[in-house]
Design a protein around this nucleic acid. Structure first.
Lengths: 347, 347
DNA sequence: GTGAAAGCGCTAACAT
DNA sequence: ATGTTAGCGCTTTCAC
């Protein structure tokens, strides 16, 4: 509380004020025992007096721990339109849920996520450089792109990393995922129970494993119910692509009475188109979505949808990553979550 | 490419391989001139060969620059329900736009944002500690809470910071904002032009300056059009609160023929309620939103709304922050953006 | 134009 | 239980 110092207080300053050595101050700051209680108090008083805060760079330099991790949203940005990808992915309600789950786990542990977008080769290099520089201890990767080269590069560089969703090609890396097939089965069962007999599906991008699994699971389940053929239209996981896909479906199969959309955003688009064409939902056409994200609740009718416990999955992802950071030799591990059906009004 | 080194290459290693001193390597890494071109090539080759990446912690320690900034979403979390605030704010499309704008500016400059939520006293302390530790060079603060103590604390601690939106009480800090009154005026004009004579408004939380400004601006503009009284219902900037507010408005003023909602999420909720009560939009009731966020495009009819150039504002925020970081003495500055009306189908 | 050397603030042996 | 000391990897005077 004397004259405002031009430079922040260091361990040295605290030590001087408390009349002890730097090592002792370091010990109490880091909660090591073997420090006399009276001295601890002395030191703490000195810390308060000086307004000391440990310098992270200095600490990282010796501990080789950054205390931050990278939260990477990866995908294929159209060349020249880099920012568009960032805008799209960040605006997706899915991202918010992932970030929320990650933060929930990391926050109590004093670890902070650095937000990164990897949509170009340049951006991927940045991410890799950032991690290799030791600016972050590891990476949480949400990839929306099947041929994403980042996972492999991460493994090659021996950087601790955990993926959201299984990689397109098997590589030795940890990930969390959902049992997509089981989820699709839930949707199929619901549609059939509701009496639908002319069922179609709006699939996600078919190069993404999750989309494939949802499609396969859905087809298998329908087949088991005695429906060998399911018309499909591929979308891109956006509301607009859902609209377009639904238009195509309706044009070719006007007698559709049930639709499974591979995510809620596309379901939302499909709903709009259905209503535009005078189809009542769920009376004329039943509709089931996937994710249970916020759009599902804003629609009217509200969407019956397959819930993906994204927050829990993201938290588990963070947990796995911290384990890998703490124990570098750890074998890759996968954790698969079970979906549940949220029955609302659309089916 | 020899045996995998257990420890990453350092400047020292590169220097040895290139047969020069550390200082020289440092110079070429940092693009200083006064290095012989032939030696530059030599060094670069050595860098490639070793796979060297500069250690950020070491660099920060001497340069006193972290190369990262904090992107802080601040607000009042309900005690015991900390994660709920995080989930809500991150899921808001507004957040995605801010993050996108910030990233667009920061990325080319090699600066990375650390995502932080400040919803409790504990979390605020974390943010402050993080910044004081030098883990980040400054803060970008988006506050959803009028009595947020963070801005003042930031100023007190002399931490470079820029706010999104003017603080509730004047303090010496830079910020970007929108001319909310002008935006509200745009909405009022549109409603009146559309022939509305019984106009009401769903306001935002009235302790937030932006909400107040939108309300004031709207009332003033309506008064100027000859309508001295505008019924209002207060919401909380969420879709659900918009529904509730609209229900109240309709109950007390069944003859409403025009509504201005202070953001799109609430407009979306209002639209749902209007339609539930059999009001056709825009024929029976015209509706104008605020923000021009993604929900505005997903609604049917699509929302006529006041566009807030959030991405540009966020980028400007980042620009201001970097200026403050580079020149610590810089005087606080405010930049006010102009809204525009996006005319679509709802009014 | 290049190298030698000091030191950023901290932790972790190692002494005591 | 506490202090001393040696770096962590980098930038940056200051000599040459």
């Amino acid at each position: 509380m004397s004259r405002p110092p031009t430079t922040p207080p260091t361990l040295e300053d605290v030590a001087r004020v408390a009349g002890v050595s730097r090592a002792t101050v370091s010990r109490v700051v880091n909660g090591t025992r073997n420090v006399d209680v009276k001295i601890q108090e002395l030191v703490r008083a000195a810390i308060d007096e000086t307004g000391y805060a440990p310098n992270r760079a200095a600490r990282s330099l010796v501990t080789k721990r950054a205390g931050t991790i990278a939260l990477v949203m990866s995908g294929a940005g159209d060349p020249g339109e880099e920012d568009a990808f960032a805008a799209r992915v960040l605006a997706d309600p899915f991202f918010g849920r992932v970030a929320g789950g990650v933060l929930g786990f990391l926050r109590p542990r004093g670890v902070h996520p650095v937000l990164m977008i990897a949509d170009t080769e340049r951006a991927r290099e940045d991410v890799l450089a950032f991690l290799r520089q030791g600016s972050a201890d590891g990476a949480l990767l949400v990839s929306t792109h099947a041929e994403d080269p980042l996972p492999v590069r991460l493994v090659e560089s021996k950087i601790p990393a955990v993926l959201f969703a299984r990689p397109a090609r098997p590589i030795p890396i940890s990930y969390v995922d959902l049992d997509h097939q089981a989820g699709a089965r839930l949707a199929a069962d619901r549609l059939v129970e509701s009496g639908c007999t002319q069922v179609a599906t709006v699939a996600g991008p078919l190069d993404v494993p999750a989309s494939q699994d949802r499609l396969t699971g859905f087809r298998d389940a329908m087949a088991r119910h005695g429906f060998p053929y399911v018309p499909i239209a591929e979308g891109g996981f956006t509301s607009a692509s859902g609209e377009a896909a639904m238009e195509r479906l309706l044009a070719e199969h006007p007698d559709i009475d049930g639709v499974f959309a591979a995510n809620d955003l596309m379901a939302q688009g499909a709903l709009l188109v259905l209503q535009k064409h005078g189809r009542r939902v769920p009376d004329d056409v039943a509709l089931v979505g996937f994710d249970d994200s916020s759009p599902a609740l804003v629609c009217r009718p509200r969407l019956t949808t397959v819930r993906q416990p994204v927050e829990d999955m993201a938290a588990e992802m963070a947990r796995l990553l911290m384990a890998h950071v703490e124990e570098p030799g750890l074998r890759p591990k996968s954790v698969i979550f079970e979906p549940t059906l949220m029955v609302r009004e659309s089916a």
